[in-house]
Simulated assay, not measured.
Amino acid sequence: MPETAPVLRRDEDGIASLTLNRPSARNALSMAMMEALLDALDAVDADRSVKVVVLAAEGPAFCAGHDLKELRAIGRNAEGLGAIFARCSQLMQRLQSIRQPVIAKVHAMATAAGCQLVATADLAIAAETARFATPGVNIGLFCSTPMVALTRNVGRKQAMEMLLTGEAIDAAAATRFGLINHAVPAAELDAAVTAMARRIASKSPLTLAIGKEAFYAQVERSTAAAYDYAAAVMTRNMLARDAQEGVGAFIDKREPTWTGC
């Protein structure tokens, strides 16, 4: 696939596939790549026909993290470096703030900010041959921003091992750690991701949006505050037409017809 654009989009059956498209650079997150991905996320968030987003990549790696050549060119310019890392943080938060669930389809190595992408996605399915690492410590640049997403997915001891050693873990370990949902044979990756995306896309888009927003809003709160918040969300959710339709369909033993409102 020619590198015509840093991010490619393909839509089918309510599923938008966003594909990182810098294979010659192992899909490193240059500023241009991050800007393109942010624009793509804004576009799908505004597109009511899209129910699920799949984040994929072209080439020999899923994502090699930040573009080290770009960072070296900036040099010891704190403002320039700060702009890069701030944009990356904005990108990660945007992945979680769009209405649709995001599934990372990881076919190969995901390192540093690439591993951060996987950890940030709502769900992740990887080929059994994929590998994951936060190797910044090996080049004197601790993976501090990837650490934020990593520690919100895996146990502290597992996160510290990855961060302090810089060593890669395989897909089986990533599944045990909670970094990804499933590891499948490489030949079955497309089918596994498509099957999960279609299952999710069959649900009410309004309910998916409410649930995703509520998940991230409650997870950092105390238990009591989370319950108060979640009870208010369920009340608002129950008043929606889709909830009324879903409950009625369940009682009447029929398939629901979602309207997204």
Rank of each mutant, 00 (worst) to 15 (best):
A57D: 03
A56Y: 02
G59K: 05
I74V: 07
L81Q: 01
L81S: 10
L95D: 05
E70S: 04
K69W: 13
G59N: 00
I74N: 00
G80V: 12
R72T: 09
S89T: 14
D67S: 07
E79C: 06
E79K: 14
I98P: 09
G82I: 09
G65V: 01
G65N: 00
A56P: 01
E70V: 10
L91K: 12
F62G: 04
G65C: 04
E79G: 15
R72Q: 10
I98L: 04
S97H: 00
H66E: 15
G82E: 11
P60K: 04
Q96G: 05
A73M: 02
G82W: 03
S89C: 03
R87Q: 09
I84Y: 10
S89I: 13
N77W: 07
I98H: 12
C88G: 15
N77I: 08
A64W: 03
S89G: 14
G65Q: 10
A83P: 05
R99D: 01
C63H: 08
I98D: 03
R87P: 13
Q96P: 08
A64R: 07
H66G: 05
L71Y: 00
N77D: 15
Q93G: 15
A57V: 04
R99Y: 02
I84N: 06
R94N: 13
Q96Y: 09
R76N: 08
R87G: 13
S89H: 11
S97L: 04
M92N: 15
Q90A: 15
A86T: 15
A61N: 00
A64Y: 09
Q93K: 12
L81T: 08
K69L: 13
F85H: 09
L95Q: 11
C88N: 15
I98G: 08
A86S: 13
R99S: 05
G59R: 00
G75K: 07
Q93A: 15
C63K: 06
Q93D: 14
G80H: 02
Q93F: 11
E58Q: 08
F62L: 00
Q90L: 10
A78G: 03
A83K: 13
R76Y: 08
A83E: 15
L55Y: 10
C63V: 06
A78R: 15
C88P: 14
A57H: 01
F62A: 02
G65S: 09
A57S: 05
H66N: 10
R87L: 04
L81I: 11
L71Q: 01
C63G: 10
I98E: 07
Q93L: 12
A86H: 14
A78K: 09
S97V: 04
R76E: 14
